[in-house]
Design a protein around this nucleic acid. Structure first.
Lengths: 348, 348
DNA sequence: CTCACAATTGTGACCGTGCACATGCGAGCA
DNA sequence: TGCTCGCATGTGCACGGTCACAATTGTGAG
């Protein structure tokens, strides 16, 4: 009844063309910044677009060009601060470059779930994948499915320097370890992340390299699961034989759990035991005591991953990408080795 | 030169049809579960699909049907635990229902950025929006742009009971406040979230209602920004006039910052001051002392939002959705009112 | 003034899928 | 046997862009 049709289709380039008195192809040329268009014509078309509130249909474009302008992000642990921050940075960077981001979270990481999530992303015809679940089995599944789109994980920057982030992780772990050594600690324990995470591996490697450099000994690292709960549990275990004066935890959450266990045992930090974490999550500066940790540039890491993916997809990347290097943030959870531990030094 | 063409197009329904010896339309019918298909035909087609590794082209489907099967999620603060958890739940639920999720993060929340993000999502022809930045100005922009797709925010479950989450928030805040009152506290301060967040508003409301019920007095709540840094700052301010025995912070991060400030001042918790937070983020059970807080079912909240959106989009929802009610987790940061504060009771 | 050539614009087909509308075919019934 | 009806399947076009190519117009040199 009313003059305005409530459910009319969205305007197409042909509608715009009609209004501007040109052919649909000319409109298309405006959309794609074709060089050979008279300014007056272009202006007329732009005005028609404005008038009709025209918005290009991505589905049609994707169908016709065979390109979806969408990238997929596969993530485990998306609720953790670091990954979440990186994902946000990826989305931001992608949006700026005109890409859409489709994400799939892995709540459980069994192969079926991984495949499920990947199929979902591939159904969306993603042009590339960023993997934020750097677990071996994910890459196994990727291999097995013989994925055809390029993919990168946070720590790779293409195929040439696959170990860029790993380098940073190793460096960060070294800095943390060196910090403890400089404070006089000789008995340092490492609580590592899950075995199959490349970050965990790199951090452990950095720790061991530095321990070796200083000609110290250490227990085999405890393999954890990144959670504060595990840190607490590990702390209780460690306290059964108190043969250490410092602990380097592979992430802040585990360090916090550890602090809790140490507090429970009535120990003073850093008086009795020094603790260093990794990541510098926002609460780390407000724990008791504030946590010494290694700060990471999660956003830079995310941006680099996206840039790297663009590169793998054949696009020239012309925006700054590299994350800043990790740096040690010395707060109050680490201090000089307690005198009670000093006698041990006489052995040397 | 080689027999296999490296860049051949992906198989379409016509390819499948040819292989199965039927028309493309019959293949389409199989895809859409049309009832009238002979079983033998269907089997033959399915086999052809398998053989060709056929995967339906979403862009073509979207173009033809006018439906993208994509929903958009607009989020601020995606790096915070609660929202991140809810987003993950939304993605999971959406994936199960065959929907794709396109997310846009708001790093800054000025109107231009909000509009930018919304345009991005609308360009993808999302069929619905979930807003996890429940700030007034976001809704202002939504109004102004006269968005045509349905949208919900985490706290609404459609138009009929827009205050479902708000109710829970109020309830949770009441529980926290009541807990402190039951411990004998009479001078309770509230550190609230940002004014324009509906959650912050609801929690403050719950606090005030309960204070009123108990016929107590309180200072006007301090308006914070959810961060631990602010909690620390607020703590320092509060300590200048120590006229309280308990603090209820609108989220755990601010509570942690507050704990830090109290520790710095040499106060004992809960001996001198009791602290209660809200959200129950994973580290809360490992702070020092472990934080009394209100546990929220973030995943349930996310699922409900998605279900609500499906409803608004006209789909019948047949999966369980409601979040469990918030519940108080009493840990060690709250305790009986200190005796030094008791004399004040004699007034009554 | 005419022609070669570049700049600008138009025409029609095509991308992969779904819909509306035939069409063929066998069963049921008079 | 002939007719109707419902199931199973086929045909052609639309969706909203882009691409390849054709057509038209404009420009400068000879």
């Amino acid at each position: 009844m009313s003059a305005e049709l409530p459910k009319e289709r969205a305007p197409s380039i042909r509608d715009v063309a009609r209004l501007a008195g040109v052919s649909h192809q000319t409109v298309s040329r405006v959309l794609n910044d074709h060089p050979s268009i008279r300014d007056s014509t272009k202006a007329r078309i732009l005005q028609a677009m404005e008038e009709l509130q025209y918005r290009p249909n991505q589905a049609a474009r994707a169908l016709s060009k065979g390109r979806s302008r969408t990238i997929g992000v596969l993530t485990a642990s998306s609720t953790q601060y670091g990954p979440a921050r990186s994902v946000a940075a990826i989305e931001d960077a992608a949006r700026r470059q005109g890409y859409f981001v489709d994400t799939a979270n892995l709540s459980v990481a069994d192969p079926a779930a991984i495949e499920d999530a990947l199929v979902h992303l591939l159904d969306q015809a993603v042009e590339g994948l960023i993997i934020i679940a750097p677990q071996e089995r994910v890459f196994d599944v990727l291999e097995r499915m013989s994925i055809e789109v390029p993919y990168v994980s946070l720590q790779s920057t293409g195929n040439h320097d696959l170990r860029a982030l790993a380098e940073d992780q190793i460096l960060g772990a070294k800095m943390a370890t060196r910090h403890l050594i400089a404070l006089g600690h000789r008995e340092i324990v490492h609580i590592a992340g899950p075995q199959d995470w490349t970050e965990a591996e790199a951090r452990m490697q950095g720790f061991l390299l530095e321990i070796d450099d200083a000609e110290l000994m250490t227990h085999p690292p405890i393999l954890g699961d990144w959670t504060a709960d595990f840190g607490y549990f590990a702390g209780q275990e460690l306290l059964r034989s108190r043969d250490f004066s410092a602990v380097f935890a592979a992430n802040d959450e585990m360090a916090l759990g550890l602090l809790h266990a140490l507090h429970d045992a009535g120990l003073d930090i850093p008086g009795d035991v020094s603790v260093v974490g990794f990541d510098d999550i926002p609460v780390s500066s407000h724990t008791w005591p504030p946590l010494t940790t290694v700060h990471q540039d999660f956003e830079g890491i995310g941006r680099r991953a996206f840039a790297s993916l663009l590169g793998a997809m054949g696009t020239i990347v012309d925006f700054p990408t590299g994350p800043t290097a990790p740096c040690l943030v010395a707060r109050d959870s680490s201090g000089p080795v307690p005198v009670s531990r000093l006698p041990l030094l006489k052995r040397y």
